[in-house]
């Protein structure tokens, strides 16, 4: 990997957005993801290479630290913010018709539940890792999920709930979506949930954190 791409990946990993960003300490005064992404483009690196070898690489490293208990949710958010800043610059440079996103995920907190911090974190990390998220917000009805899926048939679905009462609403949503026979994969998350619960309601997976969810989604396309 070139020094430039390595430096860019490091800026993503530590969340250094631009030269004004005053963290991390060892990168103060240096260029951030915004400047380095522009520089990489000017040097002739393709957007695909910048995305894969620098931006995704930085997200991967912070994700590995998270899995090892050396980083926590704020680290993922900080890195995702830097990644998204770089992605904004990169986006217009992808060839027309090329598949910039890895795929789409329709996400929402289920009916009756107003908690969204967990969903928003997962959304941010997914986007930071190259997935497109259609966010349906909180208190989302079954009909709203189906309507969105009909408009985006190739999407996966992520259901979120924080209450043991509202997580029960997931089963009806899962059953209704499976009846459409689109082959949609449905994933669930939220504090009171478990893999057992996901299996019981016919969902395709439960993930306790955004990193493990991203890893699984990436494995579906690799």
């Amino acid at each position: 990997m070139s020094d430039l791409l390595f430096n860019l990946s490091e800026c993503v990993e530590y969340g250094k957005i631009n030269s004004d960003t005053q963290y991390p300490k060892h990168l103060i005064g240096k260029k951030g993801t915004v400047e380095l992404t522009e520089e990489a483009l000017n040097c002739g690196f393709s957007p695909e290479v910048i995305l894969a070898d620098a931006l995704i690489m930085g997200m991967k490293r912070i994700g590995e630290k998270f899995a090892q208990g050396k980083a926590f949710i704020p680290n993922l958010l900080i890195a995702s913010k830097a990644m998204n800043a770089a992605s904004t610059i990169l986006k217009p440079h992808f060839q027309k018709g090329s598949d910039y996103h890895k795929g789409k995920i329709i996400m929402g907190t289920v009916k009756g539940d107003l908690h969204d911090i967990g969903k928003n974190i997962v959304k941010m990390v997914l986007e930071g890792n190259g997935w497109q998220v259609i966010d349906l917000g909180v208190d989302t009805s079954k009909e709203k999920f189906i309507e969105s899926l009909n408009e985006n048939k190739e999407s996966h679905i992520g259901l979120s709930a924080l209450l043991t009462t509202t997580m029960l609403n997931m089963e009806d949503i899962v059953n209704s979506i499976k009846l459409l026979n689109y082959g949609t994969k449905i994933f669930v998350g939220g504090a009171p949930l478990s893999s057992d619960f996901a299996n019981k309601i016919g969902a395709d997976g439960y993930f306790p954190d955004p990193h493990s969810f991203v890893n699984y989604l990436d494995s579906l396309i690799n």
Binding site: Y14, G15, Q22, P24, G69, A71, P74
Partner: peptide, 16 residues
Amino acid sequence: VLGYKNVEIPEAVKQG
């Protein structure tokens, strides 16, 4: 509560 025990705390978290 965020989980940072014996690991580096990001400056962004401290400043935030």
